[in-house]
């Protein structure tokens, strides 16, 4: 069963929460660098401004692809919070990212083209880990349904430590943070101009930004599942997790894409294989 109410709540609240997280992120980043930093609401100002800008395009189809990207990111998050099938969520997410990539391709600029290729490399790098994480949840709880996984009464982190670490390793890439921000990244990082988003401007760029907020909340939800048996611990764990990400972002330099791909695959292979084999043959809980 899925819960439509949660889905609607996600669609409404996730941008607010995601934007706030982004704002806190920027503030903390600034503090770590000894700066004052922008107001916490800065991400909302940014998107508000982007919506006020002129609507310009490089190619007609690019806006379509970005809109579809936003729709499917929101869709997969809503499906997740509604308690739907985890595999379907993963696939919808893949679809969303491919749409973003296609949007970048359609703009035909060499910068967004390289960004698109790198985004695909990223996709290829983290996809196995995400699929295997879904498999891990299934093996541990006997269900792909997010609702049932979340209702699982025992701590999943205890049976899925390998999956957890692997997913955390990948999270850096999903959040577009150093050292794995190879396709595009947040403000004040210099790029091969601006990666996938080079040719997006105004409201189109705003949509990319909002999609990212949705995705942040969805990712945190994914990690929530590991701690779902105790909401208090879950909130604390997620806070620590995100703080760690901010710290890593500020403490590391971007790696080359080859290294990113290789290391993520190695981590995925070793950790998830070990974890899954252990689960399948020696039973979880």
């Amino acid at each position: 069963m899925i819960n439509v109410l949660f889905a609607v709540a996600f669609l409404v609240l996730a941008p607010i929460l995601g934007g706030l997280i982004a704002g806190i992120d920027r503030k903390l980043t600034a503090r770590m660098q000894g700066r004052v930093g922008p107001p916490v609401l800065q991400p909302f100002y940014d998107v508000g401004k982007l919506l006020e800008k002129e609507h310009v395009i490089v190619s007609v189809s690019q806006n379509f692809f970005v809109l579809a990207y936003l729709v499917f990111i929101a869709f997969s998050g809503a499906l997740f919070f509604a308690g739907g099938d985890l595999l379907l969520v993963v696939f919808a997410l893949t679809l969303a990212h491919v749409l973003l990539v296609l949007g970048a391709y359609s703009a035909t600029s060499p910068y967004s083209f390289i960004g698109a290729e790198r985004e695909l490399v990223q996709l290829m790098a983290y996809e196995p880990m995400v699929i295997l994480a879904a498999a891990g949840f299934y093996l541990a709880t006997g269900s792909f349904s997010v609702m049932e996984i979340a209702a699982f009464p025992r701590p999943l982190i205890a049976v899925l430590p390998g999956i957890f670490i692997g997913l955390f390793y990948v999270l850096t890439m999903k959040l577009r943070k150093s050292p794995f921000d190879i396709a595009t990244s947040h403000h004040a990082h210099q790029e091969i101009v601006k990666g996938v988003t080079t040719e997006f401007s105004g409201s189109t760029l705003g949509m990319v930004e909002v999609a990212h907020w949705y995705e942040t909340v969805f990712l945190l939800g994914l990690f929530w599942l590991f701690f779902a048996w105790s909401p208090v611990i879950a909130v604390i764990a997620l806070a620590i997790l995100y703080l760690a990400e901010i710290f890593i972002d500020n403490a590391t330099a971007r790696v080359r894409w080859g290294f990113a791909l290789r290391s993520i695959w190695a981590v995925t292979l070793v950790l998830s294989a070990a974890n899954l084999v252990w689960l399948q043959y020696f039973g979880g809980l």
Binding site: V98, L102, Y105, T108, P128, I131, L276
Partner: peptide, 29 residues
């Protein structure tokens, strides 16, 4: 099944890569 899972997880990630870049070429101009 774990062996198969690993094969399909990595395999389909790679699949996404080569199809998407081909699609990209078709729509880049």
């Amino acid at each position: 099944g774990v062996v198969f899972l690993l094969l399909i997880a990595f395999g389909s990630a790679i699949t996404v890569f080569f199809w998407a870049k081909w699609m990209g070429i078709l729509i880049a101009r």
